[in-house]
Simulated scan of single mutants.
Amino acid sequence: MTEQPSTLYAKLLGETAPISWQELQPFFARGALLWVGAELDLVEVAQAVAEDDQGKVANWLTAGSLRKVEAEIAEDLLARDPKLWAVVVAPWVLVQERAGDVVLH
């Protein structure tokens, strides 16, 4: 990534917001939630998804750093109710546990 953030990166950054697991449950039920690992930049991942950067996305999927939210993660989030950060890249909602609250899944 260059030193100057792209227009899309800046737009996505502005659309990123804190959210509770309760608010995300309908998206989970539709299978539209993607979990972004703590080691990744949520907005950079959202940008790659929005730009259909298949190379980056495939690498993250293969590494397990990006994946659909499955029942195990959902149950953990329901039990712990951590602070989450999310951004929408239709049809997906990308979600990440906020720094400082991260528990490895």
Rank of each mutant, 00 (worst) to 15 (best):
Ser65Gly: 14
Lys56Gly: 02
Ala38Ser: 13
Val49Gly: 07
Ser65Phe: 12
Ala48Ser: 09
Glu51Lys: 10
Gly64Leu: 03
Glu44Thr: 02
Glu51Thr: 10
Val45Lys: 00
Asn59Trp: 14
Ala63Phe: 15
Glu44Ala: 15
Leu61Arg: 09
Gly37Lys: 04
Trp60His: 06
Asn59Val: 11
Lys56Asp: 06
Glu39Cys: 05
Ala63Met: 15
Trp35Phe: 07
Val43Pro: 00
Glu51Tyr: 04
Ala58Phe: 09
Gly37Ala: 15
Glu39Arg: 08
Trp35Met: 09
Ala46His: 02
Trp35Ala: 09
Ala38Pro: 03
Ala58Lys: 14
Gly55Thr: 13
Glu51Ile: 01
Glu51Gln: 14
Gly64Lys: 05
Leu66Cys: 05
Val57Pro: 03
Glu39Trp: 07
Asp41Ile: 04
Asn59Tyr: 11
Ser65Lys: 15
Leu42Arg: 09
Val57Ile: 14
Ala63Val: 08
Gln54Met: 10
Asn59Gln: 14
Glu39Ile: 06
Val49Ala: 05
Asp41Ala: 14
Gly55Leu: 09
Glu44Asn: 08
Glu51Met: 08
Ser65Cys: 12
Ala48Thr: 04
Val45Trp: 00
Asp41Met: 08
Ala48Met: 08
Leu66Glu: 03
Val36Tyr: 00
Gln47Glu: 15
Ser65Pro: 01
Thr62Phe: 15
Asn59Thr: 14
Thr62Leu: 12
Ala48Gln: 09
Val36Trp: 01
Asp53Arg: 10
Thr62Glu: 13
Val45Glu: 00
Glu44Leu: 11
Asp53His: 08
Gly55Asp: 11
Gly64Phe: 12
Asp41Glu: 15
Gln54Cys: 07
Val45Ser: 01
Gly55Pro: 02
Ala63Tyr: 14
Ala63Gln: 15
Ala50Lys: 09
Leu42Trp: 04
Leu42Asn: 03
Gln54Val: 12
Val57Leu: 08
